[in-house]
Design a binder for these strands. Sequence first.
DNA 1: AAGTTAATGCACTTCCATTGCACTATAATT
DNA 2: AATTATAGTGCAATGGAAGTGCATTAACTT
Lengths: 138, 138
Amino acid sequence: MSDITTTLKTKGIRPTAMRSLVYQELAKQDTAVALTDIELAFTKADRTTLYRTVKTFEENGIVHQIDDGTGISKYALCEPGCNCEIENDLHLHFHCSNCDKTVCLTEHKIPQISLPDGYVAEDVNLVVKGICSDCSGS
Amino acid sequence: MSDITTTLKTKGIRPTAMRSLVYQELAKQDTAVALTDIELAFTKADRTTLYRTVKTFEENGIVHQIDDGTGISKYALCEPGCNCEIENDLHLHFHCSNCDKTVCLTEHKIPQISLPDGYVAEDVNLVVKGICSDCSGS
DNA sequence: AAGTTAATGCACTTCCATTGCACTATAATT
DNA sequence: AATTATAGTGCAATGGAAGTGCATTAACTT
Ligand SMILES: [Mn+2]
Ligand SMILES: [Mn+2]
Ligand SMILES: [Zn+2]
Ligand SMILES: [Zn+2]
């Protein structure tokens, strides 16, 4: 039984061929990807299937969705040991305005945010926009 | 010459009737609003006009756009003295998962964010999702 | 008032997200 | 192993928000 199959089972979902392939594809990435990116990698598979696969992954803490401000949802595999379906993994995200890539900065946790009285925080989303290290040339 | 007219002229745009009305509508709000909200307030005006009016406001530092993670852009009047078309006004935003309202927490500035080497920050978006003071009942 | 420039309204388009339903594969039961 | 139940997949269609082209109208300049 493959490594990915085990992972999927552990997360409580059926390890279908499609899911294993999508998982593999996501694991290859060093940036967060949009659904259309995944579509391009699987021209034979249906958009809906990929869509639902990613949704399933999200609901089961395999990937997390990133709203990078472009209006297009991005997805990235969760870190090993991440429990973001229960408690949020509050790392920050970076969106490069030059190459349009979005990356997880998993080492950079979001600082504690103070709120006015009466406000209760459930989730925090912090996205920095700018020039990534590949594009700044340093 | 009305107050709003002066404001619009100061910001460098023509003070049309439509713009004054939209400005007035935005000034009434205590939360950030979507374009569809504005549409509902001006059933006689065309969507496109409202769309371009808000865009113009945004380009001229009259309103700022807020990406609250819902996928629907929200807009709010800038604070007096805000220069967000030149330099970002980095206050945080709160989106209530109960009443779906988005508010500017203009007093709560976004803390300095450290980035890995090579990354250059141009803009920061910080959105806290949770229960607002109206909904938490405290 | 005439001429110029900008704003508005209408129609149309694009893009991503999402759903319903039929079909197929997988797993469980007999 | 065959049957039944359950879950996944593919196709088609829909919805919602954002954006564009162009003709018309209003606002400003002279
Ligand atoms: Mn991430
Ligand atoms: Mn704001
Ligand atoms: Zn880049
Ligand atoms: Zn609320």
